[in-house]
Simulated scan of single mutants.
Amino acid sequence: MLTYTSYSEAGGVGKTTLTANLAKAHVERGHDVLVIDLDQQRGCLSHLLGVDDNRSDPDADTIVHHMVDRPQGEFEDLIRTTEGIDVIPSHDSLEQLDDWLTKAGDYQATTEDEDWEYPRNEQLRRVLRENDVPSQYDVIIVDPPATAGPHLYNGIDATRSLVIPLELTGKGDQSVEGLEELVAGLEAQLELEVGVLAVVPNGFKGTSDQDTYLDTVDELTYDVPVVLRERGSLFEGCWRQQCTAFTYVDEHRSRKRDHEMETLEKIRSLAAHLEAEAGLKGGDDK
C-alpha cells in the first residue's frame, strides 16, 4: 500500500495540481485511489476536480465531523468519484478544524485520567482505521494546506510519508536548504519517523539561475525522480475545465502536443517511482 501527503511550506508551487495528476496516474496504472482534501482554501483539489459543490452546505456531513467523532452519516457517503479517483472533498468546516479538535479533546478529557492527552493529530488515522479504509485502497493521498497545523499533522500522521514539490527560484532555494530541517521538525512535532518519497522540482524553465538551483536539489539525500517543466497553458486549462491534465489533453485539446505528452509521461514515471518505493505493484502485476 502507498500512502503519502503532498506538502510544500511555500504556496504557489503546483502542489494541488501535482497531487490530482499523480492520483490520476495511479488510477491509470490500475490502482484504487483515495484522495483526502484537507485544504480549506477555495483553490483546492476538490475545486480542481469539480467535487466541491457542497463545500458551503452547513448541513453536509464532512471529514471534520468524523475526525471529532461526531459523524452525521456513513463515512462512505463522504466519497465522491471523478475520473476514477475517489475524493473526500474539502468543506468550509475545515477552517475551524483546530477549534473543533480542541473542543473534542476537552469533552473527552472529562472521562479520562488527569494525565491523559487528547491525540489531536491522530484523528484522521483513527477514522481511516475504524472504517477499514486501508483494505479498500492501494493508494491514499492527503492534500493539506501549505501551513503547519492540525490539517498537515493529521495528514502526515495518517500517511507517514511526504511528496514535496519545489519551485526553482531563490525562494525555492531557501526551501531546499531547509528541507531536511523541516522534515526533522515534523518528526519531532509528531514523534514519528516521516519518509520523503520524492522531491519534485516544478515549473522548470531552463534558465541559468534555475540550473544553479537544480544543482542544489541534486545534492539532497532525498530522491528527485523527475523535473517537471513549466506548463502554464496545460495546467491553467486543467483548472478552467476542472479536470486532470490527462483528461484535459484527451478531451479538450484539438491535437496532442509533444511537450505536454512528455509532461504526462513524467507524471506517470513519478507515480511508478512512488509505487515502487512502497513495494506496490502496478497494472497486471498486482
Rank of each mutant, 00 (worst) to 15 (best):
T3R: 14
T3I: 05
S6I: 13
Y7I: 13
S8M: 02
E9V: 12
A10C: 14
V13L: 03
G14T: 03
T16P: 01
T17L: 11
N21F: 09
N21M: 10
L22P: 04
A25P: 08
H26T: 06
H26V: 08
E28C: 07
E28L: 10
G30T: 10
G30K: 01
G30H: 02
G30A: 10
H31C: 11
V33E: 03
V33K: 01
L34Y: 00
V35N: 01
L38T: 09
G43M: 14
C44T: 15
C44N: 14
G50N: 06
V51W: 01
V51R: 05
D53C: 03
N54H: 08
N54K: 13
S56Y: 15
D57N: 14
D61Y: 07
T62D: 05
T62P: 10
V64I: 10
H66L: 04
E74V: 14
E76D: 07
L78Y: 04
T81N: 11
E83N: 05
E83C: 09
E83I: 09
G84V: 09
I85Q: 04
V87L: 10
V87G: 00
S90Q: 05
H91D: 02
S93H: 07
Q96N: 13
D99W: 14
D99M: 15
T102L: 13
A104S: 15
G105F: 10
G105M: 08
Y107T: 15
A109M: 14
T110Y: 01
T110A: 09
T110I: 11
E114K: 12
P119D: 10
R120N: 09
E122R: 15
Q123D: 08
L124Q: 06
V127M: 11
L128Q: 00
V133K: 03
S135Q: 09
Q136V: 06
Y137K: 06
Y137A: 08
V139N: 03
P145Y: 03
P145K: 07
T147I: 10
G149N: 05
Y153R: 10
G155W: 02
A158G: 04
A158Q: 02
T159N: 03
T159H: 02
V163E: 01
V163G: 00
L168P: 05
T169R: 06
D173F: 06
Q174P: 01
S175E: 08
V176M: 06
L179T: 02
E180M: 08
V183R: 02
A184S: 13
A188M: 12
E193R: 14
G195T: 13
L197N: 02
V199A: 03
V199N: 02
V200W: 00
K205Q: 11
Q210K: 01
D211I: 06
T212C: 08
V217R: 02
T221R: 12
E230G: 03
S233W: 11
F235P: 00
F235T: 12
G237E: 12
Q241G: 11
Q241P: 04
Q242G: 03
Q242I: 08
C243I: 09
T247K: 12
Y248F: 14
V249G: 05
R253I: 15
R253F: 13
R253D: 13
M261P: 04
T263E: 14
L264C: 05
L264W: 01
I267H: 02
L270K: 05
L270A: 11
L270D: 00
A271Q: 04
G279W: 07
L280Y: 12
K281R: 15
D284H: 07
